[in-house]
Nucleic acid binder design. Structure first.
Lengths: 266, 266
DNA sequence: CCGATTATTCAACAAATGTTGAAGTAAATT
DNA sequence: AATTTACTTCAACATTTGTTGAATAATCGG
């Protein structure tokens, strides 16, 4: 029974169980072209496997997509949660620095994307797309990551006790946006910077993101601290003049562009 | 000739030229389900128009997608550029505040998404997806927005003369990520905050994003200022310990998945 | 009013889509 | 060894996909 371990079937020139090969192939393809941009035949051919196996092992294409998304989520969340609690405990003098909290949130992701192998890289690229999709984002992201995010935000609130919770939620949203675009690795910053920065250089992101975000959090909270003040207008600095530009030239707000039927929902 | 103005054709129950109706319908659908998630029949049926008109007016589905993306880009860039130069000019004493520069970059977008009508809203949701897509992002975003972005970054560098340019490019990447996720309006922050924040509340974003991002820029630049120091390791605070978790478990890094042909367009 | 250009419709195309059921084969269980 | 279970293959299915060409209708320049 143990002798011929490989080549259990005629195909399978190099790899393990078909179910996993499908998951790996699907992960890569979905990450590149999205759910609708990939056919089950694309996936099964890349995996060197029969088409019917997707339905057999997962039930269908949608379920495969969900399985791909789910596979690595547990691992990540456990790791991030452990790191978060550790940071919280090891903060001896007072509460931990915002940087460390943010780092506990982002580092496990950046580390796996950088050195976890191509599967992890694809996985995060997939997350980058899902997170910005009105179709998939609210479903998949919420389902798999909300518990951790809630804990993360709770720790942030603990570390910023004087801060209006709304500022923290917005700050978290900005953080997530910056993080997920990082995972997309579109190479756009490479071109913009003339090669000075590479979007694949996640170590550089790790060296900067937490600092950037922490400063952002503090700025929001510092502004929102005076309880009664509604921070809903103006740009930023207290001493600011002509900060808010006059309404954008052909301000679409009031008049303009209502002639034929430029905007009709469906 | 002027008499029967409406009902130029049998169909067209309420609207103008078919080409525009196709653009509008395509904009909305593409924004919701992406390029592959929408069929030309979805679009033409939503527009109340024959299927063949897509090929006739645009040449094909891909060209329609490009046309949708292109349509509003010029308008936006002109407006943003004007605002940027105005901010730069009106900064009397010294250079303009970072907040004002960032605001010139983001405000025209936020304003149109908030009050430009459903077409603009869809357009930005589409941008949110395209920007995080490794397939479309490098092509479309670069093509339509890079000139403006380069100018924007140039002004930032002017305002932060002591700062290593790399910090500015990274800061810009984080800004773009935060901004594009905002445009997705997935409603995730609504659920997370228990209704305290709404992702559709772009005024709240406008009130916070520039401040958040400006603080981030300053934090990055302050750190990178000492010329010789390479800011590429560690989290943030000098005193940090046990941040790096043990190596990820079943690294699929080496082997796996390079068999057939990794990239085949249909 | 006429010819020409433009716009739209209709029907059909080949190719690709996700899924299924029957048949086949290997492994595990008895 | 016989039987059950788990996995894989093959061929086919009904739809849906994007695109096209010929025919029809509207618009416009004269």
């Amino acid at each position: 029974m143990r002798m011929m371990r490989r080549k259990t079937r005629a195909r399978n020139p190099a790899a393990g169980p078909a179910k996993l090969r499908i998951l790996d192939a699907a992960e890569e393809r979905f990450a590149r072209n999205g759910f609708y941009g990939v056919s089950v035949r694309d996936i099964t051919e890349a995996a060197g496997v029969d088409v019917a196996l997707v339905s057999y092992h997962f039930g269908g294409k949608r379920e495969l997509f969900a399985a791909v998304f789910q596979r690595r989520a547990q691992t990540l969340n456990a790791e991030r949660l452990a790191l978060l609690e550790q940071v919280r405990r090891q903060a001896l003098p007072g509460t931990p620095a915002i940087e460390e909290i943010v780092n506990a949130f982002t580092f496990p992701l950046l580390e796996r994307s950088a050195r976890g192998g191509p599967g992890w890289k694809s996985y995060f690229a997939l997350i980058a797309q899902v997170n910005n999709s009105p179709e998939w984002g609210p479903v998949l992201m919420t389902e798999h990551f909300d518990p951790l995010v809630e804990r993360f935000i709770a720790v942030l609130r603990e570390a910023l006790p004087d801060c209006d919770p709304r500022e923290i939620y917005w700050g978290y949203q900005f953080l997530t946006g910056a993080l997920t675009l990082t995972f997309a690795e579109t190479g756009r910053i490479d071109k913009l910077s003339g090669g000075l920065c590479r979007s694949s250089d996640l170590d550089s992101v790790h060296a900067r993101l937490a600092r950037y975000v922490a400063a952002g959090f503090r700025a929001l909270c510092a502004y929102a601290k005076p309880a009664g003040v509604k921070p809903a207008t103006g740009t930023a600095r207290p001493r600011q003049r002509a900060a808010k530009p006059r309404s954008p030239s052909p301000s679409p707000g009031r008049r303009a562009r209502r002639r034929t039927s430029p905007e009709r929902r469906r």
